[in-house]
Design a protein around this nucleic acid. Sequence first.
DNA 1: TTCTCTGCAAACGCTTTGCACGGAT
DNA 2: ATCCGTGCAAAGCGTTTGCAGAGAA
Lengths: 150, 150
Amino acid sequence: MKEGETISIGGLKELLESKGVKPSYQRLRILEYIMKKNTHPSVDTIYKALYKKIPTLSKTTIYNTLSLFEKKRIVRSVTILDNELRYDFLKDPHAHFLCLECKEVYDIYLDSDLLYRDFIVGHRVNECHIHFRGICKNCLENAGRLEKIS
Amino acid sequence: MKEGETISIGGLKELLESKGVKPSYQRLRILEYIMKKNTHPSVDTIYKALYKKIPTLSKTTIYNTLSLFEKKRIVRSVTILDNELRYDFLKDPHAHFLCLECKEVYDIYLDSDLLYRDFIVGHRVNECHIHFRGICKNCLENAGRLEKIS
DNA sequence: TTCTCTGCAAACGCTTTGCACGGAT
DNA sequence: ATCCGTGCAAAGCGTTTGCAGAGAA
C-alpha cells in the first residue's frame, strides 16, 4: 500500500484474500476496526468496541485473528507499553509517540535512514522500532488552559 | 556519568547515596549485577544469578529495588519484549538491537539527532526509544558454520 | 465428511499487592 | 519505639492453550 492510498471498507475482503486469509465475519470486523481507528488498539479495546455489535465475540478470537494477521503481514504488534500488546495496521515505515498523560499512541512520519537499514554494526536488521514518549500536543494545551483557569 | 567513565564496584555505595538511595546489601548486589552485565537482564535473570549468593533473596525485593532505581533515574526499563521487563543501566543515549534468534539485547550507539529532540510535531519529547530486531552477528556466523557442516 | 473457525474455560507467567517479620536509627 | 527494607503468599491481569461445538467446503 503506497502512501496516500486508501482502502475502502468494501475492499477489506479482497485485502484478506490477497494475503491468503479467509475473510470471516469476525476477521473483517477486526480488520475494519484496526484500519479505521488509528489509535493502535489493545485486544481489550477492540473487544470492548466490537462486543456491542458481536455479542458472542471472544477475546480468544481476537488473539487468534491478530496473530494470524501478524503472520500474514497485515498488522504488526507495537511494543511500547510493557503490560499489553498494541496493534498497528501495516503502512509505510513510521515511528510512534506515546503520551505518558493520556496513553494515546500517535504515528510519526520520519525522514530517517534508520528505518531502512539492512545491517547495523554487523547485525542483520529485519525491523526498526522507534518511539518517543512525552506529553502530546493536546495534553500540553489542556495543561495550559488549566493554568489559566486556576 | 560521562562517556568513557567507569564506576568501580567500590563506588556503588556512593552512587546510591548520591541518588538518595540507602545502600542495602541487596540493592548493592542488584546494582552491581546490572552494571557489570551489559545484557539488559530480566527480573528472573537477576534472581537466578543472585539467588546463589543470597539464598533468601525474593523477587519482590528485585521488583521493589528496580522500580526504586527507575524512579531515582539509576536504571531504565527497556520495552522490547512484550512479555517481560528488561532493565538497562542509564548510560548515554543509545539504541538497542534484539536478536530474534538468541533473544540477546545489544547496545547500539547511534549518531542520530532523533535521540536528542525536545519536540516532535508539537509533542514534547521526554524519551526516545530506538530498537532494531533481526539476527545478530554471532547467530549469523553460527548459521554460516552450520551450512558448511551440513 | 473433513477441515477450519470460533469461543468457553482453564492454565500460564510476569508483575503487583497485602502484610508481617526483623534490622537499623 | 519508630521507620523502612525484606520477602512470603496471594491476588491480579494480559495472554496462551486445550478442547469441543458450529459452520463452511
